[in-house]
Design a protein around this nucleic acid. Structure first.
Length: 466
RNA sequence: GUGGGUGUAGCUCAGUGGUAGAGCGCCGGACUGUGGCUCCGGAAGUCGCGGGUUCGAACCCCGUCAUCCACCCCA
């Protein structure tokens, strides 16, 4: 087996036609919804100067940046001066800093491109993967957060997801609460890691882990008191008495909930004071999408009012949301959520090659059918007809056109329906319309999987997935 | 980065020290202008790679790479 050499590099993937169709379908839905909200497309280079990326993602993120050796003077020294983009937010911040004057006052952009992380691959996790980002630049209003939540909700609903939560928290609330429990600032990160496991290892498990990590028992108990399932904004407000910044953050959260009542996101928001998010550039509200059968998240986002200022010196408020395309695809594939026509065959008609003498005629026929709007593949060799039929059936092509000596002499063509086995010999001029009239139903010849509508109607109850 | 599982035909896997197997797929034929069903025949693997133990290794040992799962972290 030569498979060792032909496999793509670790964590990278080839996308075969079926994969690309599924990806294009999801990307198409995402882009269409984002456009409906007035977001404009943006693309940025795969490579950034390394200093653009370093120091933006926190300690963990810095390690995972894919560094690239530029050819030339640094080749021998091994010094890296370029890096593959780690996310789409930092490149956006750079773009805004560079073109601020040319962009609208409230720049709303979406961007669907690959990002790279030098991470260890796992289920739903790759070294090269796509993110679908929407961001709104220039406003501090919580209307921005509410619209972003609404947009991603609309995307998920359009794809057939019904049961999902958008967890909402705020950086200032988080630090305020941790400080209120008596956990010193340097321990905030490690404490959150433990608290985050509440649903996995339970209260006792978290308490044990907190203490193991050097947090005192009183603080651990206080933390467990606040960070529990179903805690309300009002309850948290009580714990934050006197902490001005945290209370302001909590009011942001309250506003997001209120505003979202008017949108598709309203039914899906859930306040989660333990939500942290790894990226260090977030300054305000933070969000994350959770679905029942995926351990990680489907996407996340938040407000980063200081990031653009790291490039331009002038702080510009900004907030964004990122959907993980690969995660969405993993869940959709497992639940059979793709509509049937995503898997439609590559052509409507296969023009068979009868023998060497009829090749030109076959090519001419293919041209006529294409001109009539059909997708037509010409079988490239005059194999036995049986083999050609088998090939067409194997590819799911619903019709075969046969042009032998008899047909040519009579100015006719034989059209065979591979689905029903019926075949008719008719005038060439009538061939295209014959197929067009029968194309729609037979296009689903090989279709499998549930449609988006069907998936939605049976998705709501978590835990019952196949 | 840590721990565990798995690497045998294109695919899914069986084979626990004595000459390498099945199902599916593929190719050919029965069916020389027609796929699906059936039957007959065929091709195909230096058993992930390297070393070791043994008269003899797919099998045991060591290493290495790949892959999967859990942890960590994340989209």
């Amino acid at each position: 087996m030569a498979s060792q050499q032909t496999r793509p590099a670790r964590g990278m993937r080839d996308f075969l036609p079926e994969d690309v169709r599924r990806r294009d379908y999801v990307i198409g839905v995402v882009a269409a919804v984002y456009q409906r909200y007035g977001f404009e497309p943006l693309e940025t280079p795969a490579l950034e100067n390394i200093e653009t990326l370093t120091g933006k993602y926190g300690e963990e993120g810095n390690k995972l940046i894919f560094k690239v050796l530029r050819r030339g003077e640094h080749e021998s020294s091994g010094e890296t001066d370029l890096a593959l983009r780690y996310d789409l937010t930092v490149p956006l911040a750079r773009v805004v800093a560079e073109y601020r004057g040319k962009l609208p006052r409230f720049f709303k952009r979406y961007q669907i491109q690959a990002v790279w992380r030098a991470d260890r691959p796992a289920r739903g996790r790759f070294r090269e993967f796509y993110q679908c980002d929407v961001d709104a630049i220039g406003s501090k209003s919580m209307v921005v957060e509410a619209e972003l939540c609404a947009a991603v909700s609309d995307v998920l609903l359009a794809l057939g997801f019904a049961a999902f939560d958008i967890k909402v928290n705020h950086r200032a609330v988080l630090t305020g609460l941790l400080s209120a429990t008596g956990i010193p600032l340097p321990f905030h990160g490690t404490a959150l890691v433990a608290i985050d496991k509440l649903d996995k290892i339970g209260r006792d498990g978290v308490r044990r882990e907190l203490v193991e990590r050097g947090i005192g028992e009183p603080a651990a108990d206080a933390a467990l008191d606040i960070f529990k399932d179903g805690v309300t904004i009002e309850q948290v407000r009580g714990a934050l008495t006197g902490r001005v910044e945290a209370l302001a953050g909590l009011d942001d959260v309250r506003q997001i909930f209120e505003l979202s009542q008017a949108t598709a996101a309203g039914a899906h928001l859930r306040f989660d004071p333990s939500l942290a998010r790894g990226l260090s550039y977030y300054t305000g509200a933070i969000m994350e999408i959770a679905v029942a059968d995926l351990p990680g998240s489907l996407g996340g986002g938040g407000r980063y009012d200081g990031l653009i200022g790291m490039f331009s010196g002038e702080d510009v408020p900004a907030c964004g949301f990122s959907l993980g395309l690969e995660r969405i695809l993993v869940v959709m594939a497992e639940r059979g959520m793709f509509p049937a026509d995503v898997q439609k065959p590559s052509a409507d008609v296969l023009v068979a090659l009868f023998d060497e003498q009829t090749v030109t005629g076959a090519l001419r026929l293919a041209g006529e059918l294409r001109a009539a709007g059909l997708r037509v593949e010409v079988y490239p060799e005059p194999d036995k007809l049986g083999k050609q039929m088998k090939y067409a059936a194997g590819k799911g092509i619903p019709f075969a056109a046969i042009l032998g000596g008899d047909e040519i002499a009579a100015g006719q063509v034989t059209i065979k329906n591979l689905g029903t086995g019926e075949q008719v010999t008719l005038d060439r001029a009538a061939a295209a319309s014959h197929v067009l009239e029968r194309r729609a139903p037979s296009a689903r010849l090989r279709a499998s999987g549930a449609s988006a509508r069907q998936a939605e109607s049976r998705a709501p109850s978590p835990g019952e997935e196949p």
